[in-house]
Amino acid sequence: MKKLNFFQNSPKAPKINVDAYLERIDQKKETPSLRYLKELQKAHLIHVPFENLDIHYGSKIILDYRKIFEKVIHRKRGGFCYELNGLFYHLLSNLGFDCYVISAEVKNKETGEFGRPFDHMAILVFIEDDLWLADVGFGDGIINPLRIKVGEVQMDYTKYWKIEEDPDDNLILKVSRDTSQYESMLRFTTEEKQLIQFIEMCEYHQTAVASPFTQKKLITRLLPNGRVTLTERKLKIQELGEHSESDILHEDEFLSKLEHHFGISFKQLIPKET
């Protein structure tokens, strides 16, 4: 696998304020390496939540990365895959990583079917003679980047991951708690995509009744030793192997928990006047 085969036609992302981005995720600028990529991804998951709150508070999400940068970096909000992985791609590219975005399809646990093309955005990074899957926009997904190597079991703190190939040459990302049984999570290929190609599905996930993002409010972030997740009905905290769960009874309680656990106030949710 030669680097030139993957990146000879891949333009670099536009310049962004790297210092402000790194300050947001409590990281320093370093030379690209696999170790640094892993640190960046985990720090991003800890400091920037996965959330769909704009969809429920009347703010339209537009794939303009200057606006998303303002939202996530300066206003200290989170976002969903198109926002977070889109921004993370910009950061990695500006730091000198060889990377590009790909399309993936999420498997629906209820129907057992995969979603539409461009259902999910993820990133491929070529480093240390291997291709790696990076993803900061799935919610409770991978914590470490995963090597794109079919059949290799990779440990990620409390989960095991494996990439397999289907008869149509698609790659299937599978997850297991104990390696006894794996469940499919994503279907993807290594084909490079352009950011503009995700606009239609970004609109779909904000408006369609069938989209999981229109069904309920959701915000979640990684903790150093667990995860905190908030919906309009539940607050769930996993930390050091302990699990706690409490009901959310009304909007005021939701907003209180949102500010306490995620540092997001009601003012940050109100659409700005244009």
Rank of each mutant, 00 (worst) to 15 (best):
residue 182 Y to N: 03
residue 159 K to I: 06
residue 45 L to K: 02
residue 64 D to L: 02
residue 104 A to S: 08
residue 272 K to A: 13
residue 234 K to T: 15
residue 122 A to E: 02
residue 131 L to A: 01
residue 28 K to V: 12
residue 231 T to G: 02
residue 97 F to Y: 06
residue 218 L to K: 06
residue 218 L to H: 11
residue 113 E to P: 01
residue 251 E to I: 09
residue 56 H to F: 01
residue 52 N to L: 02
residue 54 D to S: 08
residue 220 T to R: 11
residue 203 E to P: 08
residue 165 E to N: 05
residue 100 Y to G: 00
residue 197 Q to A: 08
residue 134 A to I: 02
residue 246 S to I: 12
residue 207 T to A: 10
residue 137 G to T: 01
residue 255 L to G: 01
residue 242 E to A: 12
residue 207 T to V: 12
residue 47 H to C: 05
residue 226 G to F: 07
residue 47 H to S: 07
residue 173 L to M: 09
residue 250 H to Y: 02
residue 108 N to D: 11
residue 250 H to L: 04
residue 219 I to L: 03
residue 157 Y to I: 11
residue 253 E to I: 07
residue 49 P to C: 08
residue 138 F to R: 10
residue 91 L to D: 00
residue 271 P to W: 13
residue 269 L to H: 03
residue 44 H to A: 04
residue 201 M to N: 12
residue 138 F to K: 07
residue 141 G to T: 08
residue 267 K to F: 06
residue 128 E to W: 03
residue 70 E to C: 14
residue 14 P to R: 09
residue 211 S to G: 05
residue 229 T to S: 10
residue 79 G to P: 02
residue 151 G to E: 02
residue 194 Q to R: 13
residue 158 T to P: 07
residue 41 Q to N: 03
residue 84 L to D: 03
residue 242 E to K: 15
residue 165 E to P: 00
residue 263 G to R: 03
residue 174 K to E: 10
residue 43 A to M: 06
residue 214 T to Y: 05
residue 29 K to T: 07
residue 158 T to M: 14
residue 169 D to I: 05
residue 42 K to W: 05
residue 106 V to C: 01
residue 23 E to Y: 06
residue 211 S to C: 06
residue 8 Q to G: 12
residue 98 D to M: 09
residue 77 R to N: 06
residue 208 A to K: 09
residue 261 H to M: 03
residue 268 Q to T: 08
residue 147 R to E: 01
residue 16 I to M: 10
residue 174 K to M: 11
residue 189 T to H: 04
residue 63 L to N: 07
residue 177 R to C: 13
residue 254 F to R: 08
residue 30 E to C: 06
residue 93 S to F: 09
residue 236 K to H: 10
residue 21 Y to F: 15
residue 132 W to Y: 14
residue 121 M to Q: 00
residue 196 I to P: 15
residue 53 L to I: 00
residue 223 L to W: 03
residue 161 W to S: 04
residue 270 I to T: 11
residue 123 I to E: 01
residue 239 E to M: 06
residue 244 S to L: 13
residue 35 R to N: 12
residue 163 I to Y: 07
residue 168 D to V: 13
residue 50 F to P: 04
residue 106 V to A: 03
residue 259 E to S: 11
residue 152 E to K: 12
residue 192 E to G: 15
residue 36 Y to H: 06
residue 14 P to D: 15
residue 171 L to H: 05
residue 124 L to M: 04
residue 204 Y to D: 01
residue 270 I to F: 14
residue 89 Y to L: 13
